[in-house]
Amino acid sequence: MEIRIKIQRFDPERDEAPHWRQYQVGAQPMDRVLDVLHTVRWQHDGGLAFRRSCGHGICGSDAMEINGRNRLACKELVKSLRQPITVAPMRGFRVVKDLMVDMTAFFEKYRAVRPYLMTDDAPPEKERLQSPEQRERYDDTTKCILCGACTTACPSFWANGKFLGPAAIVQAHRFLMDSRDQGAEQRAGVLNDASGVWRCRTIFNCTDACPRGIQVTKAIGDVKKLLVARSASPDGPPARAQRAGGPPSA
């Protein structure tokens, strides 16, 4: 089958502004947008720049705006898309070239929420145990692949690049809801800030954009509620309260 694809092109060394370029290429019905981008690059225009790594929806390298919505190019079948298929870089990031964006600030925000287990307890003899119910609380947010589709689908982020963004909050959620973690206090500063979770307007673009099906807006809502409970609690951070029930006995 013949595919018409319009790609937003921008080379900062040559172009003053981004522009669209249309290509007509042959494709199989089961091809994905990534396959078509490969065909364009390998057979029509070797100058086309885009990121991809695993090509199977795991690494999160090839998130881009496909037909007006953030998607992974390696997960979108061309036969299910209206033509001409439009492909543009994610919004809100500086475009390095064509579909490649600068994600430096994105990963700085990721690091700012301290996305790792923080605990003061002495290491146990074996594992730090938790019940299936305690594990379930953050199961959804373990699926994040840091592709950036949620953050760059968020109107609050387009309006203010300082906003922490859904992806970083999802990462914070993964540890805040973990019964073994005690880092709520250290993470609260960056989350409970004007550029933190409160800039979320419950728009759900992030949830719709997530290629892993994470309930992103719900995760942000969980973090908002945790911060409210923290500030309302006279006994300090409810990170301790989360630990109620305790780990299962070995």
């Binding site: 705006e65 037909n67 007006g68 919505r69 439009t86 543009a88 919004r91 689908a153 109107p155 307007r201 419950t202 728009i203 759900f204 673009n205 949830t207 719709d208 807006t217």
Partner: peptide, 14 residues
């Protein structure tokens, strides 16, 4: 710039 095709949440927010 083209329009982002968000869902019900985006349009109700606008």
């Amino acid at each position: 710039m083209s329009r982002y095709r968000g869902g019900i949440g985006q349009w109700s927010w606008i």
